[in-house]
Amino acid sequence: MDPQMTTRDELWSDLLRRALAGDGPCYARFLHEATPVIRKIARARCTVEAEVEDIVQEVLLAVHAKRHTWRSDQPVSPWLYAIARYKAADAARRRRVAVPIEDVVETLEDEAAGDVTAARDLARLLDGIDPRAAGIVRAVGVEGESAGEVGARLGMSEGAVRVAYHRAMTKLRRMAEAEDD
């Protein structure tokens, strides 16, 4: 390696420049060197450690799919970080919305099995969020009403009920995690 290429950005720029010209080993090395940085960014946006690696891989796929958007006369690090931040935030957001439904199923199963602790925990957690949201969680998650029924009762659209429900479940999950820690 040229001794003048002291900084990391110069090295990475050189690697990606060669990669874009068709050099596979340089591309592999660029992606390997970028991965720890991407992992750090992913970890900052996702508290669930098990999901961090999924997000890292999503970012790597995005970097790959958008590698032609780097201008080779520009430093590569700001470009890489921008993509990583955008994609990691996006992936973390999608996971926050997608996860709670399974959480509810668990809660319901727990209750069906007569696990008093879980039911009591849920009741206590529900006291910690605002009453309207708690009402929606009780109606949808515990009583089993449909979002449409709850919406009709509260004067909200079905979609608004779903959104409020997901937000509340996310909050509850965080509260539960905070207690576990």
């Binding site: 990669a19 874009l20 010209a21 068709g22 050099d23 596979g24 080993p25 340089c26 591309y27 592999a28 992606l31 390997h32 991965t35 690696e53 890292v56 891989q57 790597l60 796929l61 790959h64 590698r67 032609h68």
Partner: peptide
């Protein structure tokens, strides 16, 4: 993740 990188680096040029 390493596997993914290996797969991606098979196609370096856009």
């Amino acid at each position: 993740t390493d596997d993914l990188i290996a797969k991606l680096s098979a196609e370096p040029a856009p």
